[in-house]
Write a protein that binds this DNA or RNA. Structure first.
Length: 648
RNA sequence: GCCGAUGUAGCUCAGGGGUAGAGCGUUUCCUUGGUAAGGAAGAGGUCACGGGUUCAAUUCCCGUCAUCGGCUCCA
């Protein structure tokens, strides 16, 4: 007998060689049906694999990440098996489970191209194969045998993967006629896979290396029940409805013009109004935290970026320098604001008493993003950072850093991003050529961030290799209303640029010292932030931000004059109101303006005109009754004040 | 940049070797209506751009550009 310890620390005895599924069966037959994988002594196992020694275990069902993982991983194998049936000779790369579903990277050779229109047929065949209820059979093999099998199969990708593995750790999984190199775990058999949707076909470089062959990647998702797939597809539809590119067009927030150039957003009046309000909000927060606004030009001499190191790092694949006709001077469109801000710092001698100096600018920068990378407002070639650079003494660094964290958290609270993760992005120590600056500076910068986060008791994850080339970062990722993750704000500690720009201050010891810099942008960029805000709110912006807070709807043209009077009064109260005086019935006007996501619809007709009232209808909620104009104005204004105040 | 797909009216989209269609929007007229679509008439298109094949190309072929799904990259 062996002792099995459960997550609640209870211990039961089972015969040696018991499997996860048998353990589940001993607890309840329902559990035996639901269990998908098992963790045995912190290793993920198949539920059919015999356990021969005392162990602590955890059974995973669909609700656990580990359970879904096994389910989707098995689905990937099923996809591969299907592809091998339909397209014999296909070579296989990797086929993992991902956050939502799975994919398989394949090489179909030069003569076969799999198109999106082929996916339904593959799906159908997959479901047929799933129903044959083939077992997933795990087999431990020697490296030599593994190599032999895939050599005979002529699959160079698997051979390459095996060559990187240690002998004695290699396992194969077989279901039906398909055998794959795989660590597992898998479902007992294919039958739980009841609903499958193949979502897209894409190119993907072998092992993520753009110098290597591009394989065909097929993305898919699968579920144990058709209903779950239907729900997932509805969620995808919902995401599509929230797409900021679609809503941006509908609400006339921004546009692009081929003539102006790809990746160069044009902010329309309503979008500009929204953005301006965000900027003013942040400016006020920064004023309260003793930041000073500065303004710098959109170009700078090439030399400036040679000094900063940006030219060496990014110059080759950037917008090429602009030259002047006579002197042949070279300028770059600024890709960053920091060098300009460093020069502002240098514009006069600084004393230790002056520090910290906090220079803020909504600085527009231009970066040559690869054409295939451009995406709506989230990835563009010209964008405005809500940038600031804080120059401080070493002894002030941690405190300054913590204050910036406070600002970022305040902004997230105010904008109703409740769910976010914080990532400490450190350098990859193996890869020195990616970074500039001394080992010592990096150590100092990285520990400053780690300590500041610890003191603020932030829950963080550390990612190596994610640092900027000049320093480590703290990155903020928000989860939006339908659960998608977006990277927004960033705070970076930098000992390197102060050195490169030879920044100094006079210390209390009458000696020159080097300040340390913090780069920070709570929104990241205005473009990206507005995009995320659109998707988070589905275009239903909070009252304090929305371009139009209220629309006045006269019942008929007879009341247009009264409506104009209401409009004027509301505008005098600083309410952003507009008038819909089209010759349409009230039902039509309500429908159209609800679709425009305007928070308040104000209906005026005979009754309202007599009482000098407005009938208030709240978007999405309906009739709120009639009230005096002043009363409504005060109500709206106090609601706005409340939002901004309550989040402090 | 790479792989694949797409590009038809302001928007969403149908069509297809014989120079174009719907709905919404827009304009005009009728209607003056009380909480999610009143009616009628009209305007609006070099079918992304440039080549080629053809008696004839928006349709087929090639190239370019842009967009979309990914990959790589992201100061």
């Amino acid at each position: 007998m062996i002792k099995i310890t459960f997550p609640d620390k209870s211990v039961r005895e089972y015969p040696k060689g018991i499997t996860g599924i048998d353990i589940a069966q001993s607890l309840s037959s329902q559990l035996a049906r639901d269990v998908l994988s098992i963790t045995v002594n912190n290793q993920l196992w198949d539920v059919t694999r015999p356990i021969n020694n005392d162990a602590s275990i955890k059974l995973h069902k669909w609700d656990d990440e580990e359970g879904k993982h096994a389910f989707w991983h098995s689905s990937a194998h099923l996809l591969a098996e299907t592809l091998e049936t339909i397209y014999p000779g296909t070579k296989f790369g990797i086929g993992p489970a991902i956050e939502n579903g799975f994919y398989y990277d394949i090489d179909t050779g030069d003569n076969v191209v799999i198109k999106e229109s082929d996916l339904p047929e593959i799906e159908k065949k997959m479901l047929e194969l799933a129903r044959t209820k083939n077992d997933f059979i795990r087999e431990e093999v020697s490296k030599a045998n593994a190599l032999k099998y895939f050599t005979q199969k002529n699959d160079e990708y698997k051979i390459e993967l095996i060559n990187d593995l240690e002998d004695g750790t290699i396992t194969l999984y077989k279901q039906g006629n398909f055998t794959d190199l795989c660590r597992g775990p898998h479902l007992p058999n294919t039958s739980p896979i009841k609903a499958i949707k193949l979502l897209s076909v894409a190119g993907a470089y072998w092992r993520g290396d753009e110098k290597r062959k591009q394989l065909t990647r097929i993305y898919g998702i699968s579920f144990p029940k058709q209903k779950m797939l239907d729900e997932y597809l509805i969620l995808l539809e919902e995401a599509k409805k929230r797409d900021h590119r679609k809503i941006g067009k509908e609400l006339e927030l921004f546009t692009f013009s081929q003539k102006v150039g790809q990746g160069l957003p044009l902010w329309l009046p309503k979008g500009a109004a929204l953005r301006e309000r965000l900027e003013n909000f942040l400016k006020k927060v920064q004023r309260d935290h003793d930041y000073q606004q500065v303004i710098t030009p959109h170009i700078g001499q090439k030399e400036l970026y040679v000094t900063s190191g940006h030219y060496a790092k990014y110059g080759q694949d950037s917008f090429q320098p602009i030259s002047t006709p006579a002197e042949g001077e070279e300028f770059l469109l600024k890709p960053m604001n920091c060098p300009h801000h460093c020069e502002i710092y240098k514009s006069k001698p600084r004393s230790y008493k002056d520090l910290p100096i906090r220079l803020a600018e909504f600085g527009t920068v231009y970066r040559y993003e690869q054409s295939g990378e451009l995406h709506g407002l989230t990835r563009v070639r010209g964008f405005t950072q809500d940038d600031a650079h804080l120059f401080c003494r070493n002894d002030q660094l941690k405190d300054e850093f913590k204050k910036v964290i406070d600002i970022v958290l305040y902004i997230f609270r105010t904008l109703d991003f409740k769910d976010f993760t914080i990532q400490i992005s450190l350098r990859d120590k193996e890869n020195h050529e990616k970074y500039i600056g001394s080992e010592e500076n990096w150590e100092k910068a990285e520990s400053a961030i780690i300590e500041a986060c610890a003191e603020k008791e932030l829950e963080t994850v550390i990612e190596y290799g994610e640092a900027a080339f000049y320093g480590p970062k703290l990155d903020f990722m928000v989860r939006d209303a339908i659960g998608r993750k977006w990277q927004l704000g960033t705070i970076q500690v930098d000992y390197n640029l102060p050195e490169r720009f030879d920044l100094e201050y006079m210390g209390s010891d009458n000696q020159k010292h080097r300040p340390v810099m913090i780069h920070r942008a709570p929104f990241g960029s205005m473009e990206r932030f507005v995009a995320v805000l659109i998707e988070h709110t589905a275009g239903k912006f909070p009252l304090w931000l929305t371009p139009e807070q209220a629309v006045i709807l006269p019942i008929s043209e007879k009341y247009n004059d009264y409506a104009k009077k209401v409009l004027k009064l509301l505008n005098n109260y600083d309410i952003r109101a507009v008038l819909d005086d089209r010759n349409e019935k009230i039902g039509k006007k309500i429908r159209d303006n609800e679709l425009k996501r305007i928070p308040y619809l104000l209906i005026v007709g005979e009754k309202e005109m007599e009482l000098q009232h407005i009938a208030v209808r709240k978007q999405g909620e309906g009739d709120k009754g009639s009230m005096k104009i002043e009363e409504f104005a005060n109500f709206v204004n106090s609601e706005v004040d409340e939002i901004l105040k309550s989040s402090i």
